[in-house]
Simulated scan of single mutants.
Amino acid sequence: MASKEELRKRKTYLQIAGFECSNCHKTTREDGTRSLLRCTRCRMSYYCSKSCQRADFSFHKQFCTAIEELSNLDEVWYSCNGKESEWNKRKIYHMQLLPAALDRDLTSYESNAWLNQPKCHVCFRTSRDLENRSALIPCTNCHVVFCCSNEHWEQHRPKHKSLCQTYQIMVQCEKIR
């Protein structure tokens, strides 16, 4: 059985997507801000305040450092060329390399964070892949699907429209849980 600390540290999809604080679960709406602070090193954890970031740092530090190591290896961080199959290959490849950088197996949180990190649903680039490292643009309704530009949103919107309500229900269920 998982300890209370392990249960408290499990991350929801909204935390991985950057709409809930990685420490206290406060959403952007509850915090009264448009966006949360993002870890500048790994760009994968989000916080409502510096104090929450400090409180989560002992839990986050090792994974953050491993991601930074991986990101600094150019041959490892290759382009997906707008292909979902390449995105999937890169994710699996990185998941095989991360345990070596961590010197241990990935936790379930780390696996989920890595596999579910936001990406453009047209070109399959993460915020780390984008040249100006700008934030991805989320769907304003479900906050589950992202695109890197308004042009890509226009291209992806017809496909996303049929799934958006399902994603909204999924997010609501996760909040209740």
Rank of each mutant, 00 (worst) to 15 (best):
S35A: 14
E68I: 00
S35M: 09
T28N: 12
A66T: 01
I67M: 13
I137D: 03
R43Y: 12
F59H: 07
C80A: 11
C120Q: 03
S22F: 09
A135N: 12
E6T: 13
K175C: 08
N116P: 00
H60S: 02
R43H: 11
R38D: 03
K89L: 13
S134T: 11
C147Q: 14
I169P: 01
K61C: 05
D74H: 02
R104N: 01
Q15D: 02
H152N: 13
Y167H: 08
W153E: 06
K91N: 07
I169T: 11
S79G: 08
E151K: 15
T126P: 00
I137L: 13
G18V: 11
S58Y: 10
H143D: 07
M44C: 10
S108E: 15
Y93S: 04
C142R: 03
R41C: 00
G82V: 05
D31I: 13
E154D: 15
E110Q: 14
R43I: 07
H25W: 10
K11T: 06
Q165T: 12
C21P: 04
L102Q: 02
D74V: 03
L97S: 00
F57V: 10
T40L: 10
L163P: 00
E86H: 12
R34N: 09
T166Q: 05
C24T: 11
L7F: 15
C52A: 03
L14W: 02
F146Q: 07
Q62V: 04
Q155H: 14
T126C: 02
N88K: 15
A55C: 05
S79T: 13
K89I: 07
N23S: 12
E30Y: 09
N132D: 15
E30M: 13
S127A: 10
Y46Q: 00
A113C: 07
K50H: 03
Q15S: 04
E154I: 14
A17P: 05
Q172K: 07
V122A: 01
M1H: 15
L73S: 05
D129G: 02
E154P: 11
Q15P: 03
T140K: 09
D105H: 14
S45R: 07
C123G: 01
A100Q: 09
D74I: 01
Q53I: 05
P99F: 06
R157V: 10
E68Y: 00
F124G: 00
L70W: 02
V76C: 03
D103H: 14
C142Q: 06
Y46T: 03
H156W: 09
S35P: 04
